[in-house]
Design a binder for these strands. Structure first.
Length: 810
RNA sequence: GCGAACGUGGCGAAACUGGCAGACGCGCAGGACUUAGGAUCCUGUCCCUCACGGGGUGCGGGUUCAACUCCCGCCGUUCGCACCA
């Protein structure tokens, strides 16, 4: 019988479904292991090989844990709302409500063909009213907790997608999806107060008991949160309120020779003098009209206008001019800065451009207070404050503390912590999303939709094209739009914004557990058993947004007493990226790998093994068609070995000692490598064992059986079939993961490298554990070694047990 | 500019806390078996050299008996962030 994946793969997929092999009893699981992977957006193109790579890597781990005796819950779902779906629907002229189910069906077919151990009983789609009903419920929980609010804000508007974008969806000033330059618009938006959680979101990143995450991912989150410590300092101006600035360098305050306010700063009006009025107004107008692109691009020339007003530097007591400039952003800090041109690049550029004063307040070890400044001087080792009154001579660190203390004692400043993180704008003026469950009433104001009235169904809308009004197309559906106020019964109108897809995905891992409950978002018993997620695998492109939002929503729900943990994902690993022949896969290059063809030609098991063998899972790999033959050959050889051992069974004593050692060492290595997602080396180790068996003509049943179990996570259909051929009636996934004898993982005899002056000259075989005195004479007796030691004095011998002996001669 | 990761044969890659660099796989070369081979099996395969030997992990230094691994300085690639005060 030859190995024919095209028949055995469908056979086992059918049998898994019939036997409900992959549907664990969620209520009775004794050793639950929640194995999560990022659910896909069901595109019309179908799953690409990158998805397969991620899912296979996650699935291998799930199957491995199952073989180790865990009850593994491995659900799958579809992230089907959002601009992506909607734009595509508009393009092809088919309603997303029609397209999405079609795509989901195709995805399901592909996922089945992949052979993942998905629990289809708990499948979900975010577009399903039974799902988004609870997404709306999540919104209401946040609303009631005071973490959702509406504000008018300058937001990013994509004129092509005709929608508001979150700051995170703007990349260097252009829309992340369509690359159109983004404009600024002022709209009422719903926000979540994620900034309230900044400190906790940051602190938990270092808490290994809560989060065991890829370092690259935590680093990205840390940067995104952007904590900086500094001070808020008040600069007195004429009139009641001083101008408050935020600075990370309060130590340089004696060098603050002017101030800059954001053009939008509320105090600008009051400060501006009559003579400067028209110039200021013109500049503010220009800045307001400007899109976010050029506003935030860093390396353009500085612009700005003098307001005519002055403020008092609280350290020097001097009057300093107040300017406005668009390089100061209203959203960050206080929207105003003290400019220290001597020690800040941007301020330096600005001061140079407009001829403003420069004062050196920090000097390096080779500099003095009067060393001229040709550029903004950075702090170096041994820098000290100069020209800073009583604080001159102090180190930067020391001076910072002292100056903040001094400002605090005088009531003009205080040490503060700021975050780069913004509140999460969840409003989308689009059609294809869950309506935000709020009703506006003339008398009662905004009223949350009562939970019993959920879901707020997304109405059927023939024409769902967004328009330029900035108002969602939902407003055009009059019967839906007009609704009675839940509080007073008078006529109200619905919120027409839908929520961001990131809200859908911020809690889906909770819903998986309880898709069989219609009356609650997640069952408390289930959650207590299965939450937090034991392992989450996904792409690092979601390192900040999705993962941060999921953490935030979890934290809020935890604080509301609804979840037993505040961090949702105990272990997170980011998989690498798959490229094709060294180049990124993209439609425009025409090098997108469609997995279906490969499954048809090679079988899913070979494809899975190949993908896992490409390179380290967390680093990705290069998909080259030529490589598939390797894993395929391995499977065929193992297949043949299974056939041979059906006929031949040797007893333990007959097995060559070398093979026994290799066998045990392989079990140990494969186990360890799987734990650390070292799939490529695990496969290599199995290949080595197989090669060793073939070389010594060994088809020992015990070893073959172990190999079949170890290969099962990678090639599940193949392993099932082999398991059956070996005569077992049950699923191989009900088998036990092989154990090994530690004493048999190492050989009695070792090869010790003999070096002379650090260069390898020979090797000697020696019993394991031999001491230097036993090895040295034999090493010196070696012919090759003799050639290099003869006539020279042995000065030193370095001996590393069981590994190496280095003879240093002079 | 800032931050992070990385750089090893023709190619994808291995190498535990510093201890034989190139496991495993692809490809390639030679051979066997075949009517045939783009199937299968065997042998070989870092570079130079007939050999002895020498050189070799992006480049230049350093530490060490010993460096892919540690330290310093460059170069390059990729990915984040980017006027964040």
């Amino acid at each position: 019988m030859t190995y024919a994946p095209e028949t055995i793969e469908p056979k086992w997929q059918r049998r898994w479904a019939e036997r409900r092999t992959n549907e664990p009893d969620l209520d009775r699981a004794e050793r639950p292991f929640y194995n999560l992977m990022m659910f896909p957006y069901p595109s019309a193109e179908g799953l690409h090989v990158g998805n397969f790579y991620a899912f296979t890597g996650a699935d291998v781990f799930g199957r491995f844990m199952r073989l180790r005796g865990y009850t593994v819950f491995e659900p799958m779902g579809f992230d089907a709302f959002g601009i992506h779906s909607e734009n595509y629907a508009l393009k092809v002229g088919i309603h997303p409500g029609v397209l999405i189910p079609r795509n989901i069906q195709n995805f399901t077919r592909q996922l089945t063909a992949l052979g993942g151990m998905f629990d289809w009983k708990h499948v979900l789609a975010t577009t399903d009213p039974d799902y988004y009903r609870w997404t709306q419920w999540v919104f209401l929980q946040l609303y009631h907790a005071g973490k959702a609010y509406k504000k008018k804000a300058a937001v990013n508007w994509c004129p092509s997608c005709k929608t508001v974008l979150a700051n995170e969806q703007v990349e260097a000033g252009v829309c992340e999806r369509c690359k159109t330059p983004v404009e600024q618009r002022l709209l009422e938006q719903w926000f979540f107060k994620i900034t309230d959680y900044a400190e906790r979101l940051l602190a938990n990143l270092d808490d290994k008991s809560k989060m065991d995450w890829s370092a690259t991912t935590t680093t990205a989150q840390r940067n995104w949160l952007g904590r900086s410590t500094g001070a808020e300092i008040d600069f007195a101006v004429e009139g009641p309120d001083p101008i408050r600035v935020f600075t990370t360098r309060p130590d340089t305050i004696f060098g603050a020779t002017f101030m800059v306010l954001a053009p939008e700063h509320p105090l600008v009006d009051r400060i501006t003098t009559a003579t400067q009025r028209s110039a200021v107004d013109a500049y503010r107008k220009a800045a307001a009209a400007q899109d976010v692109v050029s506003r935030k691009v860093g390396d353009k020339e500085k612009t700005g206008v003098f307001t005519g007003g002055h403020a008092t530097n609280p350290a020097t007591g001097r009057q300093i001019p107040i300017w406005i400039a668009d390089y100061v952003l209203m959203e960050y800090g206080t929207g105003a800065i003290m400019a220290v041109p001597g020690h800040d690049e941007r301020d330096f550029a600005f001061a140079t451009r407009f001829g403003l004063d420069l004062v050196r307040v920090v000097a390096g070890p080779d500099e003095t207070e009067s060393t001229p400044l040709t550029e903004a001087a950075a702090e170096v080792e041994g820098s000290r404050l100069v020209n800073s009154g009583d604080f001159s001579g102090r180190t930067v660190a020391d001076g910072t503390t002292a100056i903040v203390g001094w400002l605090e004692s005088r009531g003009v400043g205080k040490g503060v912590v700021k975050f780069r993180l913004y509140d999460w704008c969840i409003s989308r003026q689009r059609y294809w999303g869950p309506p935000i469950p709020i009703i506006y009433c003339g008398d009662c104001g905004p009223v949350p939709v009562p939970e019993k009235d959920l879901p707020v169904q997304l109405p059927e809308l023939e024409d769902f094209r967004p328009d330029d009004s900035g108002v969602s197309p939902l407003a055009r559906h009059k019967e839906w739009y007009h609704v009675a106020c839940p509080k007073c019964g008078k006529e109200g109108r619905r919120e027409t914004d839908v929520s961001d897809t990131f809200l859908d995905s911020a809690w889906y891992f909770l819903r998986y557990l309880s898709t069989d409950f219609a009356d609650r978002p997640f069952d408390q018993t289930r959650v207590r058993k299965w939450f937090p997620v034991a392992q989450y695998i996904g792409g690092n492109e979601h390192a900040v947004l999705h993962l941060l939002y999921a953490r935030f929503v979890t934290m809020v729900l935890h604080d509301l007493g609804l979840l037993p943990a505040e961090e949702p994902f105990r272990r997170f690993r980011a998989h690498g990226l798959i490229v094709k022949d060294g180049a990124k896969m993209s439609k425009s290059r025409g090098n997108v790998v469609v997995p279906d063809e490969y499954i048809a030609k090679w079988g899913a098991d070979t494809l899975r093994m190949f993908l896992m063998f490409l390179g380290p899972f967390e680093e990705g790999g290069d998909f080259r068609d030529a490589g598939l033959i390797g894993p395929r050959r391995f499977l065929e050889r193992l297949w043949d070995l299974v056939g041979q051992c059906e006929r031949r069974t040797l007893t333990g004593e007959e097995i060559h000692r070398d093979i026994v050692v290799k066998w045990n060492a392989t079990k140990k290595k494969v186990t360890h490598d799987l734990e650390t997602l070292g799939y490529n080396t695990a496969i290599a180790a199995m290949m080595e064992l197989l090669n060793a068996m073939r070389d010594s003509n060994c088809a020992e049943r015990q070893i073959v059986k172990d190999l079949v179990v170890m290969v099962a996570p990678f090639a599940p259909h193949f392993a099932e079939e082999c398991w059956e051929r070996l005569g077992y009636p049950t699923s191989v996934f009900d088998a036990k993961w092989p154990i090994w004898d530690e004493a048999l993982t190492i050989d009695h005899v070792v090869e010790i490298v003999v070096q002379v002056n650090g260069k390898t000259r020979s090797t000697v075989r020696s019993p394991r554990g031999a001491v230097q005195d036993a090895v040295l004479p034999r090493a010196l007796a070696d012919d090759t070694v003799k050639r290099f030691t003869e006539g020279r004095e042995v000065r030193k011998v370095i001996f590393v047990k069981d590994r190496l002996i280095n003879i240093v001669v002079g």
